[in-house]
């Protein structure tokens, strides 16, 4: 199966290999957003990723947070959207907004 659900199996497998692992999950969306709630991105301590939480627009920023939670930072709820100030920064070109929960697998 190549669907969403592989990611959690991979998370356990990576953990078993002794890697540090963090999961990012889309928990809310507003307007047009590329991935629905429940979409997940898996990140390991080296920054390898699997899955997605957007069309590629915010993955870079999410990985940065994922690396921080793997180093012991508390889980965090990130919000991404397009505003005038950040239109050229990290955001969604589609004009939607998403909330992404980032946590370590301990």
């Amino acid at each position: 199966m190549t669907g969403e659900h592989d990611i959690l199996a991979q998370a356990a497998a990576w953990k078993d290999e002794g890697r540090k692992v963090a999961l990012a999950t889309v928990v809310s969306t507003w307007g047009s957003s590329p991935r629905p709630a429940g979409s997940q991105l898996l990140v390991d301590g080296a920054g390898n990723m699997m899955g997605s939480v957007s069309g590629g627009c915010i993955e870079g920023a999410v990985v940065k947070e994922a690396l921080a939670v793997m180093e012991g930072a508390p889980p965090t709820l990130l919000e991404f959207g397009v505003s005038n100030e950040q239109a050229w920064d990290v955001g969604l070109a589609c004009g939607g907004r998403v909330q992404v929960y980032v946590e370590a697998v301990s």
């Binding site: 659900h5 998370a11 356990a12 946590e103 697998v105």
Partner: peptide, 28 residues
């Protein structure tokens, strides 16, 4: 999330059970 919970979640999904992970986002 800890690894034990992740394993239980994966087992339930593999057994094709209707599964829901309830995440309390503020109290982690």
């Amino acid at each position: 999330m800890n690894l034990q919970l992740l394993r239980q979640l994966n087992e339930a999904r593999a057994a094709k059970r209707a599964t829901c992970l309830v995440r309390f986002l503020d109290r982690h």
